[in-house]
Design a protein around this nucleic acid. Structure first.
Length: 303
DNA sequence: ACACGTAGAGAACTGGT
DNA sequence: ACCAGCACTCTACGTGT
C-alpha cells in the first residue's frame, strides 16, 4: 500500500512511502529506509481455509483460561427475535426457549464446569481488589484449572483454592503481594489459604523463587509517592545488606521497608517509620531493628 | 510528633516421635 | 498429627528529643 504525502523520509526527504501490512513496516520507496517497524495490522482477522475466498468468516477472540469454557461460547440470545429483528412465531419461540435451557445445562452441567464458573468469578473479584492485570489473572486461572483437573478442589473450599492459586501466581510472577493482602480480599482464613497453597504447590510441582526484598521496593515506593532516586538508592542498600548477610532469615518486607527508610533519609525524601510500616505490613519495631542493624554494619552515616 | 528500646506474647518453621 | 525448640516479629509500653 502506497501512502503519499503525509510522511517524509528522514533520509532522502522523499514522500513516496510504502506501507507493507503483512511485514508490519513502513519504508521509503526511493532509498529503501525502513521508517516504522512492528506496525500492528489493523485489519479484521478473516480466515478461509477451504473455500478459496468464497466463504470468508471472522475468527473469534483468542481462547482464554478466564472463562469456564475458555471463551469458546455459543450464545443463544434471550430476545425472541430473528436476524432481521422480527418476533418469532409462537411455536419457534417455545423451541428456542427449550434450546436455551439445554444449552445452559450443557455449558455448566458437568461438576467441574460449574465449579469453574463460581471459581473464576471469585478469581476476578479478588484480582479486581488487588489490581492484578489480565496476564496475572490468566496465570492464576490456569493454576486453578490444573488443580481442578487433578481433583485437588474436591472437599476443599473453592474460595480458599482460588486464593491459593492467586497467591501462587503472585509468587511465580513476583508481584509482591503478601499472603495477608490476599487473605484480606477473601472470605477465608489465613490457615485455609496457606494449606491450600501448600497442596497445590506440591501436587502441581510449581517452583517459586524465594521472596527477595528488592521485589517490594517498586510498589512500596510508589505507594509512598517517593521519587525514583529513593527507589534506586533502596536497591543499593539492599544489595549491600545482602553482601553482609543481613537479609538471611529476616522478613524480606522488613528489609525492604528499612532500606526505603534509609534511602529516604539519604535522599532527603523522609517518610516516617509509621508511614512505611503502614504500607509494608511490618511494624515500626521491625523497621527499626532492621535499619539499625543495616546502618551499623554498613557504616552508613545519616546526617 | 517522631524516634528509640525493651519484655513478653505469638506466629511460623523444623525436626522428632 | 501433635509437640518442643528456635529465630524472628508483633504488641504494648515507657522514655527521649
Amino acid at each position: 500500500m502506497r501512502v503519499e504525502g503525509i510522511v517524509k523520509c528522514p533520509e532522502c526527504s522523499s514522500r513516496s512511502i510504502e506501507q507493507d501490512i503483512s511485514r508490519g513496516e513502513k519504508s521509503c520507496l526511493d532509498c529503501g529506509l525502513v521508517i516504522v517497524e512492528n506496525l500492528i495490522d489493523p485489519r479484521a482477522e478473516w480466515t478461509d481455509y477451504d473455500t478459496n475466498g468464497k466463504n470468508m468468516s471472522r475468527v473469534g477472540s483468542p481462547t482464554t483460561p478466564l472463562f469456564h469454557d475458555k471463551g469458546l461460547t455459543t450464545a443463544i440470545p434471550w430476545q425472541n427475535k430473528d436476524f432481521s429483528g422480527k418476533g418469532l412465531p409462537g411455536k419457534t419461540r417455545v423451541q428456542f426457549h427449550r434450546l436455551r435451557k439445554w444449552q445452559q445445562r450443557a455449558n455448566t452441567s458437568r461438576g467441574h464446569e460449574r465449579n469453574l464458573v463460581v471459581a473464576l468469578l471469585e478469581l476476578d473479584r479478588i484480582s479486581g481488589t488487588l489490581g492484578f492485570n489480565r496476564t496475572a489473572r490468566e496465570e492464576a486461572a490456569t493454576i486453578y484449572r490444573m488443580s481442578v483437573e487433578r481433583g485437588l478442589v474436591r472437599g476443599r473450599s473453592i474460595d480458599a483454592m482460588v486464593a491459593a492459586s492467586l497467591y501462587l501466581m503472585n509468587q511465580k510472577l513476583q508481584l509482591a503481594r503478601s499472603l495477608e493482602n490476599i487473605v484480606e480480599a477473601t472470605r477465608c482464613s489465613r490457615k485455609e489459604v496457606s494449606k491450600a497453597h501448600k497442596i497445590i504447590k506440591s501436587s502441581l510441582g510449581i517452583r517459586t523463587s524465594i521472596p527477595e526484598p528488592g521485589m517490594y521496593i517498586g510498589r512500596f515506593c510508589s505507594d509512598l509517592e517517593l521519587p525514583i532516586s529513593v527507589e534506586q538508592r533502596s536497591h543499593e542498600v539492599i544489595a549491600l545488606a545482602k553482601e553482609k548477610e543481613l537479609t538471611h532469615g529476616r522478613s524480606p518486607m522488613g528489609v525492604a521497608a528499612a532500606a526505603i527508610y534509609i534511602a529516604g533519609r539519604i535522599e532527603n525524601s523522609v517518610r516516617t517509620q509509621r508511614e512505611i510500616a503502614d504500607i509494608s505490613n511490618v511494624t515500626e519495631v521491625t523497621i527499626r531493628n532492621r535499619y539499625k542493624e543495616i546502618v551499623s554494619h554498613l557504616e552508613i552515616d545519616l546526617n
